[in-house]
């Protein structure tokens, strides 16, 4: 068992085109670190110095992690993490 991470089109350049990849970790931050080890460059698209990037939505199962614990959100085998770039502009 692992954590399934669903990757949006715009980030599939980091995953050889894969729509979903697997990862592991006890928190979202550890999971992103694990992804970075196999998909270098992806971390920088998800986080910056202040935490999760403002215009990237990350969901744990059915919840936006911003309403959970952000990067500290606990994750476990069997969870699904979905990444969606925010649709926004001016």
């Amino acid at each position: 068992m692992a954590i399934e991470v669903r990757i949006p089109t715009i980030l599939r350049t980091y995953t050889d085109g894969a729509k979903a990849v697997e990862g592991k970790g006890g928190t979202l931050e550890e999971l992103i670190g694990d992804l970075e080890a196999r998909h270098p460059g992806i971390k920088d698209r998800l986080v910056d110095g202040a935490g999760l990037r403002r215009f990237v939505n990350v969901y744990l199962n059915d919840e936006d992690v911003r309403f959970l614990g952000g990067l500290e959100t606990p994750v476990a085998d069997g969870d699904t993490v979905t990444v969606l770039p925010a649709v926004a502009g001016g």
């Binding site: 939505n57 936006d64 925010a86 649709v87």
Partner: peptide, 19 residues
């Protein structure tokens, strides 16, 4: 979609609705 910003100068899809 709902404009979560409800603004005359900005828009953003509500994150839960987007999911």
């Amino acid at each position: 979609m709902e404009n979560a910003e409800r603004s005359p100068t900005f828009y953003r899809f509500d994150s839960m609705e987007q999911l």
